[in-house]
């Protein structure tokens, strides 16, 4: 699974059978279709502890999820390892995955969390129109981000929050 050099792993998660909860998976599938040689994508229903071992093989990891309260159309933030207590039995936070990776599987990769704003989470397939628009905006940003990452090393002063849509 590990890539050579500055390998990037995009992990989208959510349930496409619950409308906008499928935003993360849609992003992962779209990025995969771009065929970028240095990017690996994967999809998961829920984010869970086994991903700690998976992400440890990459230089850069981007977690992509739907959000009920992220700024529209999306947010994109640098992520630090954090042992956050979550009250769900069946999923853990990206920061917690990072902490697990850092503690047990070598240096934690440089990581970001992309939270795409969703609106409706009923039993129904397909994204709502506003969520679809948010996905497109997020895709434009992420494609550009990945393109730049293929050409350059990380700038120490790079702050992706300043470059996310709506925050520029």
């Amino acid at each position: 699974m590990s890539g050579a050099g500055r390998s990037v792993f995009v992990l989208g998660y959510g349930n496409p059978g619950r409308q906008d909860d499928g935003l993360g998976l849609s992003m992962a599938e779209t990025i995969q279709s771009l065929g970028l040689s240095f990017v690996t994508t994967d999809a998961a229903f829920q984010l869970n502890i086994e991903e700690a071992e998976t992400i440890s093989g990459y230089d850069v990891v981007i977690f992509v999820d739907a959000s009920v309260d992220a700024p529209e159309p999306f947010s994109f933030e640098r992520l630090a390892p954090a042992g956050e207590v979550t009250f769900t039995s069946h999923s853990v936070s990206p920061g917690s995955i990072m902490k697990l990776a850092a503690d047990h599987f070598g240096p934690a990769p440089e990581a970001y969390v992309m939270a795409i704003r969703g609106y409706s989470f009923e039993f129904e397939e397909g994204l709502t129109e506003p969520a679809q628009r948010n996905l497109e905006a997020a895709l434009t940003f992420l494609s550009d981000f990945l393109s730049r990452r293929s050409r350059e090393s990380v700038r120490e002063d790079f702050d992706p929050r300043l470059e996310s849509a709506g925050v520029k």
């Binding site: 959510g14 349930n15 059978g17 619950r18 906008d20 909860d21 829920q46 999820d65 739907a66 959000s67 009920v68 309260d69 992220a70 979550t86 009250f87 769900t88 069946h90 999923s91 939270a115 969703g118 989470f121 039993f123």
Partner: peptide
């Protein structure tokens, strides 16, 4: 109803 999990939905 564990088929959805979007960020920010699980307060106690």
């Amino acid at each position: 109803s564990c088929a959805t999990h979007a960020l920010g939905q699980m307060p106690l």
